[in-house]
Each structure stands twice: as C-alpha cells, then as structure tokens.
Amino acid sequence: MAIITISRLTGSGGREIATATAEALNFQLIDRAAMDIVIDQQFPVRTEQLSRIKKNRRVYDEMMRSAIAELAAAHHVVILGSGAQFLFARVAASLHVQIVAPLPYRIARVMRTAQVDRQKAEKIIADRDHEKETFIGTLYGKDWRDPAHYDLVLNIDHFSNEVAVEIIVRAAQAKGIEARPVELPAQLREEILTAKLDVAQMADLEPVEDKLPDFAHQSEREFARVMDFYRIRWQYEPKTFPIEWDENHNIVKAFTPDFYLPDLDLFIELTTMKQSLVTKKNRKVRMLRELYPDVNIKILYERDYKNLIWKYGIGNGDEESNGNGGSGK
C-alpha cells in the first residue's frame, strides 16, 4: 500500500503536519508509540523478554524496520521519523517529505510548546537533531538533512499547516503512490525474516520459566502467566510496607503484596488459602490502606482467582478456555 514518510527538523512542527496529512488522506499514522504496539503484534514473545530484547540496539532496529515494512505492505501509512525515508527509498509507492524551518522559527516554537526559555530550547533542538543524525548515520550511513533524499522539502515558515498538507496530498497524487502496490525490495524482505528469526532465537535463549521468580504459590505463577499474556507488566513482591511499630519505632509488622503492576500503579494480593488466614490478610490490607492512602491495592479472593483460572482455562488445562463467552470470544 502507499507510504508517506515525514522527516522533520526538531521544532518544525512536523508531527502536526504528519497527523493532518494522515487524516486528510485517511492513512494510518505511525509514530514511535504506534510502532511499539506494531512490534508487540509482530513479535509474539513475553513483554518482559521483549523489553530485554529491545535493549539490544541492533535487534531493536531490525524489529522496527521489520514492523514498519510489514505494516506498510498491508496499509496506507504516514510514518513519522524513524529513518523510514531510507528504509523505503527504493519503493515506488512512496513519497518522502522533509519539513524544515529556519532556526529562529524552531526556537520560538519549542519555547512555546515545551514552555522553556530560549537557552533550553536551543539545547533541545541541538540535542534532538544530533540524536537523529547519529541514529540515521549508524543505521543507514546517510546524512538525514540532505534534501536529495526527499521528493519534497517544505519550509514551514512559508506556508500554513493547511497549505503544507495540501501540497503533500497533491504531491502524493501526482506521484500516484496509492495506485501502485508496495513491492518490498528482496533485501528488505530478507531483513524482515532475519529480524523475526533473531528475536525468536533470543527469546529461545531465555527460557520463560528460568526468568520467572521463585513464586511462593502455584496460583502466583498462573496469575503471572495471565498478566504476561495480556502484556501487563508485573513485578513480584517488589515492596514491603511497614504497618505496625513498637514504642521504639521498630517495625513489628510489615506487609508485602504479591504483585505490583507498574503501568496501572496497582498492587495485587492473591489469597487462595483458608478463611482464618484470609481474615488476617484482610486486616493487613486494611491497615495498609489506612497508613498509605495513596497506594492502590486489590485483593483477589479464592473465588475471584478461581473465576480467573476457570475463565482462562488454566490450572487443569481443559477446554473451558472460553470461560464465560464474555471475554472468551
């Protein structure tokens, strides 16, 4: 499908133009955040493993390139940054745009949008542009500022955003990008495959079970698996809260919830044990809530947990996976 890449000098407002172009053409906008989700989709390994794998710069770059390429083969896209202009340089169904503006315009814009003084704005611009230069230089060995890499270079100081979008749309039509199929060059297709193999291999080298903490109960292990499936990051017993002190201020009682879900800022306590212990645990949670009113904690009782296990068909591995059609689909 058709690809428009938009590269921009820091502070030129390229993101707004990319968003408006995507809207005008009904293309999907791919920015960094969207790209991470596409990567999650294309590389089905545990979130925990994926974040570790992503730390390997070479592999992450491969994953990113593969993700963009596969996406662009199936959808009309506007890709913001990420060196996509070089990735798709030889793809006919693409339009490569660079948004530029004179330095004073960019400084003024960053001062306004980031609410910083002139000196800070100058530093932000210099740092980000340098980062881009290094990123593109390392990955593609090219100078990203060179206008010869683009079909269209727009000085945004001379046009309103609306006009800029109109020009890009006209250029896309003139080049006929929507009418042509995206044919990925053989080398790129090979790279996609290599990225997938690399990630699969790296994931294999780190067997899931070895990376799991020593859970106190099987129920905790199963809960962690469900979290992993839904790509919800978790930490096992990362924090202990003191809840009772003696007269000398020594801690006499503390409580360590089983899980912390950092993206949700939520602690989870699983109770799958006998009632006498549940009462004790309830008391601890109540004290924790009183002493730390800002801490979000949820207790999953045996009934909640059984519902969860039954719903997702784990535990005994039977075919109840649909649980309640509810989420089972």
């Binding site: 293309f27 499936f229 997702y312 784990i314 996976s321 649909n322």
Partner: peptide, 22 residues
C-alpha cells in the same frame, strides 16, 4: 484469548478494515 494460545501473548487475529484515525 488465553486458552487458545497459553504459551504466547495476546494478538489481534482479525484487524479492523477501516482506518480509525480522527
């Protein structure tokens, strides 16, 4: 859903046909 592929992670098995931007 979890039961279908308990070793993996959740994935879209049928995506939208339409672009929902805007």
């Amino acid at each position: 859903s979890y039961g279908e592929d308990s070793e993996g992670v959740v994935r879209i098995t049928k995506d939208l046909e339409e672009n929902i931007a805007g």
